[in-house]
Nucleic acid binder design. Structure first.
Lengths: 156, 156
DNA sequence: CCCATGTGATTGATGCGTCATCCAAATTAC
DNA sequence: GTAATTTGGATGACGCATCAATCACATGGG
């Protein structure tokens, strides 16, 4: 039974990792609270509505939508149920597949996202992009894509 | 009534922003699922236990603990209640402040964190740090600290 | 034609995070 | 010394995310 030596994080690594985690928590929290306060939409609502807006006729198959926002179907199902109750989207049956369903954005949903989007974009700018140089932003994107790629290759 | 021109994100900005968000969601999700599977601890549990372990006698005042992990007191209260029910920590009354409370790590909690830590550190390495160069890591940390600093200055 | 398997989606249970409210003890003001 | 305020913390309600189980329809094989 060999004692495996644990390679703990150096002070620098630890700081970087904690800072990175903190950044997302704080920035994400702030942005979603802003969105909620200004538009009565959660970040999840926003993601769904943006996707529907980009789709032809503002309608999309259930699982396609789930894949677009990278959610499990269960989460999507619960969330769409709540959004439907609030009148932001509606469910529609699918003619060519008896078990399928479409999700359609409503007038109300469209109004909500159109009101929210400019404010949200402005918030992303003023809270994040404004404080990052273009070079840094490229580095961030490059690192993010690389790490996610490895995540995909190496399944759970 | 002036039409304010919305400064939408460029394709590059949008990509960087989405990649960044995706990185945290995916990496965070993966790490916490690993932690849960290997150690029956959530990321939140882990943070609490690490802090308690670092404190003298494994005990800390309630709000100090909350500040350390950067949570609201309400969240801490709920979470400590759940952790106490699982036997990971215990509450203790505070002699010199009648309303105060200490949170103390239990034997069970200590065992849990000591088992979890090496695995978690290894996961952070293999899923993240291994794919980031030291220079990139420094950039990340620098950007994160800068953005959070601005976040702090500019309250909600 | 019928069975097996796969796929699209729902449901219920449970734990988590936030908000608003509340309470008791401590501190300050008068 | 007592009233007002602040501080430490708990509580309940609600929305959200995950997991496991379920159900209905579809499709391929025999």
């Amino acid at each position: 039974m060999a004692e495996e030596a644990v390679r703990w994080l150096t002070a620098e690594e630890q700081h970087a990792w904690r800072s990175f985690v903190r950044l997302h928590e704080r920035l994400g929290g702030r942005l979603s609270r802003l969105l909620q306060a200004e538009s009565k939409l959660s970040a999840a609502d926003y993601a769904v509505l943006v996707n529907l807006t980009d789709a032809p006729d503002g309608r999309q198959r259930f699982l396609d939508l789930a894949r677009s926002v990278e959610w499990e179907k269960s989460r999507m199902s619960h969330h769409i149920a709540r959004m439907a109750k609030r009148g932001l989207v509606a469910r529609e049956e699918c003619p060519e597949d008896g078990r399928g369903a479409f999700v359609v954005i409503t007038e109300e949903g469209r109004a909500a996202i159109e009101a929210a989007a400019p404010l949200h974009v402005e918030a992303v700018r003023s809270l994040f992009l404004d404080h990052v140089t273009p070079a840094e932003l490229r580095t961030l994107a490059r690192v993010a894509d690389r790490v996610v790629e490895h995540l995909d290759e190496e399944p759970a």
